[in-house]
């Protein structure tokens, strides 16, 4: 459970740090970013996990999303892990930007050669929280999750698969129905095999239709000029339809003019942190 500090920078009154550790789930060295708000110096703080999108490392979010100011304001620790195992020397892992390295899709792979290392779901829902709670001043009962694109998909499935575990969930331009989109089909067939029934366990839309558990309150922002929205990679309508039917509360905001970039994320980060704070600080 040892962590090694890679970097530490004072930020927004607190500290933006990066650590490295040997992951047991992923069987490789993993980096993750932790933002410690000023409040963490004296108190236990809730934790928001941020799952990044395709090709990202722990760096993109902490350098581009502008999350530290509102996190400092609301006293929230933000943990941003990497998006996949790295340096596992699996054949073909670096061949595609949307599969393998940087594209773990937050699933536990069942197929060779991925199943040994590509266990991002277990990593972000089990190993990482334990590690964080053991090493940082956290309130273990107060955690929430958010993410962007593939990470948005990750956040949604983590919340839907673990009723009650996350106090709040939100997403930026999430891949809402990977079963139905090219990215999802490619990743899931690679990691999970051809049996589509196993895919449903990692599909937010499918999971929503069978969700039962404590009331969720999902905030989703989506840029209207997102090229992946028009490319039918994200399919938010499918999720909204199911949530409407299943009475799962979602506020879905289609933001005119915004694309899929961190510029879009940056623009609505405040709203999302506030959304998490409402539940984490309740």
């Amino acid at each position: 459970m040892a962590v090694t500090q890679v970097s530490s920078n004072k930020c927004s009154g607190g500290f933006q740090k990066v650590f490295e550790h040997d992951s047991t789930e992923l069987k490789c060295k993993m980096k993750f970013a932790v933002y410690l708000p000023p409040k963490a110096e004296t108190d236990k703080c809730p934790v928001m996990y941020w799952l990044s999108g395709l090709t990202c490392t722990e760096q993109n979010f902490i350098t581009k999303a502008g999350s530290q100011v509102p996190a400092a304001e609301h006293g929230i620790i933000i943990v941003a892990p990497d998006t996949s195992p790295r340096g596992c020397n699996i054949e073909g892992e670096d061949e595609n930007w949307d599969f393998g390295t940087g594209a773990g899709f937050y699933v536990d792979a069942t197929q060779d050669p991925w199943k040994t290392n590509y266990r991002m779901y277990a990593y972000v829902t089990e190993e990482l929280p334990k590690l964080i709670n053991a090493n940082f001043p956290t309130d273990p009962d107060k955690m929430s999750i958010s993410g962007h694109s593939m990470g948005g998909h990750g956040a949604l499935i983590c919340a839907l698969k673990n009723p009650g575990k996350y106090k709040a969930v939100s997403a930026f331009a999430p891949i809402c129905n990977p079963l139905q989109c090219p990215w999802g089909q490619k990743a899931f067939s690679g990691y999970l095999g051809s049996d589509r029934s196993t895919w449903e366990a990692y599909d937010a839309t499918a999971l929503a239709s069978s969700y039962s558990g404590p009331q969720l309150d999902i905030l989703i922002d989506q840029g209207r000029d997102d090229q992946f929205l028009s490319a039918s990679q994200l399919l938010p309508d499918n999720l909204i339809a199911v949530c409407s039917e299943k009475k799962i509360p979602v506020v879905f905001r289609l933001q005119p003019g915004y694309d899929h970039s961190f510029f879009f994320i940056y623009s609505f980060m405040n709203d999302h942190i506030k959304h998490h704070a409402k539940f984490l600080n309740a």
Partner: peptide, 19 residues
């Protein structure tokens, strides 16, 4: 469906509410 608008000056953000 049920449509919700948050109107000011004739303009509303595009937003969907499931419940």
């Amino acid at each position: 469906r049920h449509k919700y608008e948050f109107l000011h000056n004739g303009w509303s953000p595009d937003l969907r509410i499931t419940v």
